[in-house]
Design a protein around this nucleic acid. Structure first.
Lengths: 208, 208
DNA sequence: TTCCCCATTGGACCAAAGTCCAATATATTT
DNA sequence: AAATATATTGGACTTTGGTCCAATGGGGAA
């Protein structure tokens, strides 16, 4: 299909580091985009391609850890690799707890960084894939009418049409209509499919 | 139901630390059991209660990190809180990557440790709960005959009895028999249930 | 060899789900 | 006021799924 060149962002206030990493990443076949500060990175409009973020911890204004938090709040889930000259244990623990891919201390070997970058990009690919799936699923869920949503919820809970009808105080006939609509709109080929979609969407269903 | 007192294991080669932690944990309402070495801890037969492990990094023979690896290999998933006097960044990163709850440097505040311990125990409770569920599920799956397993797999994929029959080269009638057996043995009240069980068990079903 | 498990199938039904076509009633929007 | 989306129901079937009772044949285990 579409062969997208992964894009690696580098955020570091040291120009020499930026230049060195840009060269290293370029030679490894990646596109690289560098930023001198976290704010600069935040302002940038990120293209929708697989990639990762190589981030210095200590920077003026917004630190790397703070940037990590901001991105998390914004729902941006690009894998982060921290690099640092004199990182502390608490910093590294905080970064890892917040989901960082790795936390490297300078100086590190080129191969070491490239290995992590490669894994980070692979992970980002999987995350993007899953996110796309969720987006289309939620879009479909949004097309359901309130009534259809109720029927959806009760059906995937395992209730018979008859029981759903009783629950909602309407006829079984009507349930069948809604149910057919739900299957149609959600793009489910079978009840089994529908149940799996419900699980992914977190539709409260399981009585277990 | 059964109110079990959480059990906190402390592994540290420094007797004064062991004694101090034992007192602290005891005053917080936990049972505490101390060990002077990783090997000593491994030899101990762990009772089945919620708890966590407070582990020193640097110890003779087997280090804390090595113990962590051993436990992972053995499928023992008790949350680990590392404590260390002079821990390094690489050590903390390795520990966190391997799933540690936290990595504290001495000296730390009592309240800090107790907070982490509390969260660790809560997590362990959830993990134990999930593991028990999986055990009963797998036990049920084990009672299925080979043929029943095949029918299980195809049914939760969303195939009609008719299609399953064609696939296996037998009659639809026979499928119904197996299918009923599967529902019975797996303890599923509905097809929706069965699909969810299959997902948890990782029964390859989704065509997506 | 006899007993039990597994796999298979038939017959006879009943229950549940799905499908077309059609119709009515509200509420909201244009 | 006309158009649209939502919710509801009926009738008339067809297809699927589920259940009971009964029976056959092969392969191990006692």
């Amino acid at each position: 299909m579409k062969e997208e060149t992964p894009l690696v962002y580098v955020v570091d206030d040291d120009p020499s580091i930026r230049k060195a990493l840009e060269r290293l990443l370029g030679s490894a076949g990646y596109d690289a985009k560098t930023f001198a500060s976290a704010l600069e990175f935040m302002d940038f409009d990120h293209p929708d391609v697989p990639g990762c973020l190589v981030l210095d911890i200590k920077m003026p204004e917004l630190s790397g850890l703070e940037l990590q938090d901001r991105l998390t709040e914004k729902g941006i889930f690009i894998p982060i690799i921290f690099i640092t000259g004199h990182g502390t244990v608490p910093d590294s623990v905080r970064a890892m707890k917040a989901g960082a891919m790795d936390f490297l201390q300078k100086p590190f070997k080129d191969s070491e960084l490239l290995g992590v970058v490669s894994r980070a990009i692979a992970r980002h690919g999987r995350l993007r894939q899953k996110k796309r799936q969720m987006n289309t699923l939620r879009a479909r869920l949004d097309t359901l009418t309130p009534r259809e949503r109720e029927v959806f919820r009760l059906v995937v809970r395992g209730m018979l049409n008859k029981q759903v009808a009783y629950d909602l105080g309407i006829t079984e006939k009507t349930i069948k209509v809604h149910r057919a609509q739900v299957m149609q709109k959600m793009g489910a080929q079978s009840l089994a499919d529908l149940v799996r979609l419900a699980e992914k969407l977190g539709v409260r269903s399981s009585t277990v």
